[in-house]
Simulated assay, not measured.
Amino acid sequence: MKEPDFPNREWQYRPSFYDLSNPSDLLKLNMLRMDGHIDQEYDQIQSQLVDLYLCRFPSDGELSGFSDFLHSVLKGIPIEEFGLWVYYPWRRSLVHILSEEEFIEVRTNRNQLKIRSEEQQLLRGKTIGIIGLSVGAAIAQTIAMERTCGRLKLADFDTLDLSNMNRLKSGVMDLGMPKVVLAAREIAQIDPYLEVEIFPLGVGKDNYTDFFGGGSPLDLLVEVCDGLQVKIESRMMARDLGVPVIMETNDRGMLDIERFDLEPGRPIFHGLLEGTDIGDPEKIDPAKRLEILMKIVDPRKISPRMQESLPMLGSRLKSWPQLASEVMLGAALCCWTARKLLLGEALASGRQYFDLHELLTGKPY
């Protein structure tokens, strides 16, 4: 499975960095300007430096010491050479931002002390893989905003359809774009220093090794895709490698945790498929697929509206019902769980329901 190249602006998702104190970078950036590749330039470095100062000296609301601080930080260089300039080719935009360490320091300042500095540093060394970029896009963006890791691997073969836009944060100008590209771009615009690798053909036997390993082996897998084959195979791979797995179904806030890092012999899906002849995951017929999926989700515990929808899949309904509110709840649950798990908290394998209807009304759905 060869990943496609993205040579033109339409498919690019990685920004470029320019250090104006480097003559070579300055020349390259001036060439971009002269060739008409930049439509907008955003230079708010002064306000970022003020923010950096207040993060370090929060009691000085009057900024009485800022002038001395600025002098000590700039060390005699022009302010336009401080930090880095980031070029986003898909937006034809150039942005002046703090250097990586200062940028992360300021951007994560409001995480404290819900996330301590030493915990943030530990998370920075972690890699999370996400399979499925419908629900997974919201999870990836939440993880990026909170900086729950330093590297993300995103996998999905699908492109954006209009019917996806009831839950995906995208615009009509993005229709037809790969979901992984859209998610990676959103993350780059939040934090260009966060490393993102995309797998726009999805994952399968040809690239599981690269997805789980490569230069950044996974510390955690978030599996939120529709494909039964990938659900099964990715868990088997995760179990072989000792990688924990999180799954969220955005129905009744169902959250799964499988601690293959602590329980290498644990059956996948909590043993719900024990006694089921799966055979070759690539050759499961549609009727068998639905039977297996029902064992995984347990039809007695899904919401009444979802139960009502299931018989209509493929006839009156295009696919599984999903709502933006439930997807966002799932993103929060997955991000929180990922952070706690990666920080070594004692989260056990199992399935939990965070059913807002039941929690707020006190009644079953």
Results as ranks from 00 to 15, higher is better:
residue 294 M to H: 13
residue 295 K to N: 11
residue 296 I to V: 05
residue 297 V to S: 04
residue 298 D to H: 14
residue 300 R to Y: 13
residue 301 K to H: 13
residue 302 I to G: 00
residue 302 I to A: 05
residue 304 P to C: 03
residue 304 P to A: 03
residue 304 P to W: 11
residue 306 M to Q: 11
residue 307 Q to I: 00
residue 307 Q to M: 07
residue 308 E to N: 13
residue 309 S to P: 05
residue 309 S to M: 02
residue 310 L to Q: 11
residue 311 P to S: 10
residue 312 M to P: 02
residue 312 M to F: 03
residue 313 L to A: 13
residue 314 G to V: 04
residue 314 G to L: 06
residue 315 S to G: 07
residue 316 R to D: 12
residue 316 R to T: 11
residue 317 L to D: 09
residue 317 L to R: 06
residue 318 K to W: 02
residue 318 K to A: 08
residue 319 S to M: 05
residue 319 S to A: 11
residue 320 W to L: 03
residue 320 W to G: 04
residue 320 W to V: 05
residue 320 W to M: 08
residue 321 P to N: 10
residue 321 P to V: 05
residue 323 L to W: 09
residue 324 A to F: 06
residue 325 S to Y: 07
residue 325 S to D: 10
residue 326 E to I: 04
residue 327 V to A: 05
residue 327 V to P: 00
residue 329 L to K: 14
residue 331 A to N: 12
residue 331 A to M: 13
residue 331 A to P: 11
residue 331 A to I: 02
residue 331 A to Q: 03
residue 331 A to H: 09
residue 332 A to P: 00
residue 332 A to N: 14
residue 332 A to K: 06
residue 333 L to G: 00
residue 333 L to V: 07
residue 333 L to E: 03
residue 334 C to W: 01
residue 335 C to S: 14
residue 335 C to T: 14
residue 336 W to A: 11
residue 336 W to V: 03
residue 338 A to I: 01
residue 339 R to L: 03
residue 340 K to R: 15
residue 340 K to Y: 12
residue 340 K to G: 05
